[in-house]
């Protein structure tokens, strides 16, 4: 028995290694954005979630998904209404969160998750009580924020502070248009565009996925 598990585990690792050696643009990615009630992934609630597949060089807006969730009446929205522009009234309609997270689990399998500031989104997917029975197994995670931070710290004049690494500041640096809303769907697409802007600039063009992921650690 143990042997069997070991083999399957090895096979998985081997296939992952092989996948990581392939060029970054031969991979499939999912840009994810999650809006929450709090920074704490254990006590907080997911308000809305959006994802959009990326198959370089295309962002598949036509396959994007977006969901808002019903939040129990007792939940305090804390500061999030001001941040996300959401109010309780807007949160009353939505789908079944478990079904939707199950869809995300399926689509993330063997793809690379892309987000801006992964610690937050990823920690919700792993630690929030609602995801208890789910196992998110992306091939890897590309964090557009970390990537940008690493790039910038290479250049000498970089005086990094928090505001220079927001999604919109990074986008401006790459000459991307500014989106004003804090809608999860817009943020997911914005993040996907930033990812392509970052990755497309990597030379040589056929650089491996492993290299790419290392850059965003």
């Amino acid at each position: 028995m143990r042997k069997g598990i070991g083999w399957s585990h090895l096979r998985k690792r081997w296939s992952r290694q092989r996948q990581l050696r392939k060029p970054w643009h031969d991979q499939r990615y999912i840009a994810v954005d999650i809006e929450t009630t709090s920074l704490d992934p254990v006590s907080g609630h997911i308000l809305s979630i959006a994802w959009v597949p990326i198959e370089p060089p295309m962002i598949l807006i036509n396959e994007a998904r977006y969901h808002e969730f019903q939040v129990a009446a007792h939940v305090d929205l804390q500061q999030s209404p001001t941040i996300h522009g959401l109010t309780k009234a807007q949160l009353t309609s939505g789908g079944d969160i478990k079904t939707i997270l199950k869809d995300l689990e399926a689509i993330l399998y063997n793809r690379i998750m892309v987000c801006h500031h992964q610690r937050l989104d990823w920690s919700y997917l792993r630690e929030n009580p609602i995801t208890k029975s789910l196992h998110f197994e992306p091939l890897g995670i590309f964090d557009t924020l970390s990537y940008e931070k690493n790039k910038l710290s290479f250049s000498s004049e970089s005086q990094l502070n928090n505001s220079s690494l927001t999604l919109s500041a990074c986008r401006t640096r790459h000459g991307l248009p500014s989106y004003t809303s804090h809608h999860a769907m817009d943020d997911a697409i914005a993040c996907a565009e930033l990812f392509l802007a970052q990755a497309t600039k990597i030379k040589p063009y056929n650089e491996s996925l492993a290299f790419l992921l290392k850059q965003s650690k």
Partner: peptide, 14 residues
Amino acid sequence: SVKQMQSTYMNADN
């Protein structure tokens, strides 16, 4: 029509 679209980042190379 938005739901039918894809988007892309275009540069000199691609």
